[in-house]
Design a protein around this nucleic acid. Structure first.
Lengths: 127, 127
DNA sequence: CCGGATCCTGGAAGATACTG
DNA sequence: CAGTATCTTCCAGGATCCGG
């Protein structure tokens, strides 16, 4: 896996692809699996979330959760107990992404096979 | 700018966030600006595209175009002349992404201000 | 239990120079 | 013109240890 960042918003070409700014918010690395897991499993503690998301490291999970919290997509609730307990859940704003994800899923099921076929033909013709 | 890759499809959590596989196809770094530019300006030669996309390097542009071609989203046409001429355009499959981008743009105009506000409040409360 | 601090590494991306 | 090859730089992410 590599890292994925996106072009600087106003840099260079500057004819401003309108969706570029959204990418770092919604499609930064790990953000979609995290949001998906929160949506599927509902409010969860940190460790649960860590398990459910998959191979993500606690450090990275913390980083991404901070970003998501800052962007208002995720709500963090801290319970000052011993031992401390922290819960995460999707915010209202985060839920507005649902139709977007639905569109993505639809496209995936519809056109992903075409991509696969394109790849195999490309690989065979360029062998 | 960093690179952005996404979690390994089946790795770890394995409850399979369904949109993860699409991310590397559609939302790899530079892919959206490239597709956007091709959509806006239509069929273009390599250098034109290089200018229009923005700050991207020729090397990186080549890499991304190869990937997009392999995935069937972009069509590459080579004219064996002197000097050589190569043209790129969006494929039919690539055009099926239009509604997806439309959804993204809609979400952007609708909810991006909320994200901005969330950020400022977060930054002030955590100062 | 949550997450910050630190060190380290693989790979992306920039710069430059070079071919068909 | 349209790439390729090589070298270097830079940073996200993994591992580990520590603290509240």
């Amino acid at each position: 896996m590599t890292a994925q960042n996106h072009p600087a918003p106003g840099a260079g070409g500057a004819q401003a692809c309108p969706i570029t700014p959204v990418l770092d918010i919604v499609f930064s690395r790990w953000t979609t699996p995290i949001l998906w897991t929160l949506h599927q499993f509902g409010r969860q503690r940190f460790v649960e979330l860590n398990r459910n998301v998959g191979t993500i490291t606690a450090k990275v999970l913390t980083q991404r959760l901070r970003q998501l919290e800052r962007d208002g997509l995720v709500i963090r609730t801290y319970h000052p107990e011993v031992p401390p307990r922290v819960e995460y859940e999707i915010s209202e704003l985060g839920l507005t992404l649902a139709p977007l994800f639905a569109t993505l899923t639809t496209w995936s099921t519809t056109h992903l096979p075409e991509v696969e076929r394109a790849r195999t033909t490309f690989d065979t013709t360029h062998a």
